[in-house]
């Protein structure tokens, strides 16, 4: 199995030394993200997030299945992450690396366990039929900070997604095609986002947002905070690494809130733009057969 390429000793020393001088390799501020790009596909539920050179594509889909026996009133909601060799030759298909496991765990905790999607609304017939919503996360290019980019992509894909409309009449379940009835959005309760801090220095006193791949290789610890724009924290993950001062962590969370508000605004703006793009000017305009010659 190919190993993850490591930066050289000289580069590691340089990055650390430059950070002591308040300098990042790409000239950003410590609490500055790379330019975030969010685009939606032609289909509903496809979101493409670009964060500098990192690029993540998320696709939401839904199908009708049987609910779990112990949860007859809940639908099924899964997030599948895949780090393909396309992102880095160190990733292999069907052999999850630590990065991949951590990524899927964090997404699971952030989006699923925080109750962002109302799974009860996915139930169609108690104990017999329910929607199974699945989000596939594909990492297309890896230049650090996969977690934040993936989380934004997952939330964007789910908010953009429309599932087919259904009706129950006399015990018969009907799933309508998009032509028969307009698909409906998911019942979405709140939008959590991840903000990852990377810590540097002997005592982890330097905190960086949106670390690049190189910075991720040099950091002494990292902490992922998931919260929504109301400041409700869904989870904090600080997995190993050098211990961080509590005051620093508190400052980190308050900056994270500001960043999450920016993400939230960006997502709302892009969703509104996409809606406008899709809106052809009402039902009659959509049914029109003549073309714009």
């Amino acid at each position: 199995m190919p190993r993850e390429a490591e930066p050289s000793l000289n580069e590691k020393q340089f990055v650390t030394q430059a950070l002591q001088e308040n300098l990042r390799l790409d000239g950003r501020e410590f609490d500055q993200y790379r330019p975030v790009e969010l685009t939606f596909g032609d289909q509903h539920g496809v979101a493409d997030v670009t964060l500098g050179k990192t690029r993540v594509l998320a696709k939401a889909s839904a199908e009708v299945t049987v609910p779990y026996a112990d949860r007859p009133l809940d639908g099924v909601f899964t997030i599948a992450t895949e780090l393909s060799p396309m992102a880095s030759p160190a990733f292999e298909v069907n052999r999850p690396t630590e990065t991949e496991v951590l990524l899927s765990r964090l997404l699971e905790k952030t989006v699923r366990r925080s109750g962002a999607l109302d799974t009860e609304s996915l139930c169609l017939v108690a104990g017999q039929k329910c929607w199974s919503v699945r989000v596939d996360v594909h990492v297309l290019s890896h230049d650090g900070n996969l977690i934040d980019a993936s989380c934004l992509a997952v939330v964007a894909a789910l908010r953009h997604f429309r599932k087919p409309d259904t009706s129950m009449e006399g015990g018969v379940l009907t799933v309508y095609t998009p032509a028969e009835r307009e698909p409906v959005p998911l019942s979405w309760l709140h939008s959590p986002f991840c903000v990852t801090w990377s810590f540097f220095g002997e005592e982890a006193d330097i905190a960086l947002l949106d670390a690049t791949w190189m910075e991720e290789q040099v950091r002494v610890g990292s902490c992922t905070v998931s919260l929504n724009k109301h400041g409700e924290i869904c989870q904090i993950a600080k997995l190993g690494g050098t211990p961080v001062d509590a005051v620093v962590l508190l400052q980190c969370t308050s900056v994270a809130l500001a960043k999450v508000k920016e993400f939230s605004e960006l997502l709302d703006k892009r969703l509104a733009e996409d809606l406008k793009r899709r809106d052809k000017g009402g039902f009659m305009a959509e049914l029109r057969a003549e073309n714009d010659r």
Binding site: S8, N10, Q13
Partner: peptide
């Protein structure tokens, strides 16, 4: 050999 901190 290249010694000291530097960046490629």
């Amino acid at each position: 050999p290249i010694t000291g901190p530097g960046c490629a």
